[in-house]
């Protein structure tokens, strides 16, 4: 079987694959924007001096982490809409429920993992910093906002970038619930043309390419903003 690159460099297959890549990137971007604040919130709940919050956040993280992403997405697509009141359900089904379920699933999933990294980052700050802030008179939230988080974020960026890498790869699973991202389109090209090699080569190259860019970004960040200890 000949490897025919021209098939995917122009024409309708090219457009399909490119649009799939766009959707994958969009999924990644939107999830990142939503997951990061959620992750910070959960991390803070884990560390807050209020026991019920600790327990809630721990339950959240453990539940998410012990269930595979596929099961999460199946739940959000098939299971969750049933719980909603009818008018919202109708609005969802008329719109892009696949993408919304995917973003919901990915966001909650990624936020759980990111919150663990952020929590490690925060705990990596010497306890003396917290003591100093509390001695001045700052409460928990103020300490976090003004003293701890700014320092913690620098330590946390590399593992967060690693999670972003995982997120990028995880968007592929959204194909299961019908989101027209890269894997979905690659399959579509394959079914239409029987050229599996070219379609999957494009998809693989895209995944690797973006993975490489993300990894390089991490290296760049590490180079420009090395962790500085007192």
């Amino acid at each position: 079987m000949q490897f025919d690159l021209s098939l995917i460099l122009s024409g309708k297959y090219h457009d399909w694959l490119l649009s799939g890549l766009g959707v994958s990137l969009a999924l990644t971007g939107i999830t990142l924007l939503l997951a990061l604040p959620l992750a910070i919130a959960i991390a803070l709940c884990r560390l807050a001096p209020i026991k019920p919050l600790n327990w809630l956040a721990l339950a959240y993280v453990e539940t998410i982490r012990n269930i595979p992403l596929l099961a999460h997405l199946l739940f959000w697509y098939f299971g969750a809409p049933e719980l909603l009141p009818d008018n919202i359900k109708e609005w969802l089904y008329s719109g892009n429920i696949e993408a919304i379920s995917a973003v919901a699933g990915l966001t909650f999933y990624t936020a759980a993992y990111m919150s663990e990294d952020i929590r490690s980052g925060i705990r990596g700050i010497p306890v003396q910093q917290i003591e100093a802030a509390r001695a001045i008179g700052f409460g928990f939230m103020a300490t976090m906002r003004l003293v701890i988080l700014p320092q913690a974020l620098r330590i946390t960026i590399p593992p967060l970038i690693s999670q972003t890498l995982n997120l990028w790869k995880n968007t592929s699973i959204a194909t299961v619930i019908g989101v027209a991202e890269l894997m979905y389109q690659a399959q579509k090209v394959e079914t239409d043309s029987f050229r599996s090699t070219e379609a999957f080569a494009f998809a693989t190259a895209s995944y690797l390419g973006v993975s490489l860019v993300i990894t390089l970004l991490a290296a760049l960040y590490h180079h420009r903003y090395p962790v500085r200890n007192v």
Binding site: K169, N170, S172, M183, Q187, T197, Y207, S211, T215
Partner: peptide, 18 residues
């Protein structure tokens, strides 16, 4: 590095088709 930069789903498809 190649395998770690690829989603598992992709590896499954490669196996499935090839």
């Amino acid at each position: 590095y190649l395998v770690r930069g690829t989603p598992l789903l992709m590896v499954i498809f490669w196996a499935y088709f090839f």
